[in-house]
């Protein structure tokens, strides 16, 4: 079980969170009309074996979306930040 540091609530069990997606993927601008851009956003992932920035939602806590920096091979967690405070 992962123990995830929530910037608001502190270190909490994985079960309080729900996993979102790769946090390096950016929602296109709403006026973006190129289907390729939207396709890549919705479907395509780097899926790295190693360090990964990813969204988690503290659903059973403060309900903040956070960006967790975690290694997908070792599950080591390097840190986290509120999604709203991470540079776009």
């Amino acid at each position: 079980m992962l123990r995830i540091p929530c910037p608001v609530c502190g270190l909490r069990d994985e079960t309080e969170f729900s996993y979102g997606a790769d946090a390096t993927v950016r929602l296109p601008d709403m006026n973006e009309a190129d289907p390729k851009v939207w396709h890549d956003y919705v479907f395509i992932r780097d899926n790295p074996r190693g360090p990964h920035k990813e969204y988690w939602h503290h659903v059973s806590g403060c309900r903040q979306w956070i960006v967790v920096h975690r290694d997908t091979l070792t599950h080591e967690i390097f840190g986290s930040a509120l999604a709203r405070e991470v540079a776009a």
Partner: peptide
């Protein structure tokens, strides 16, 4: 109910802050 809320929070806290 839960999915719509989570999705709304996601959009507002990431892309549409």
């Amino acid at each position: 109910a839960a999915n719509v809320l989570a999705r709304a929070e996601y959009l507002l806290q990431t892309a549409w802050r």
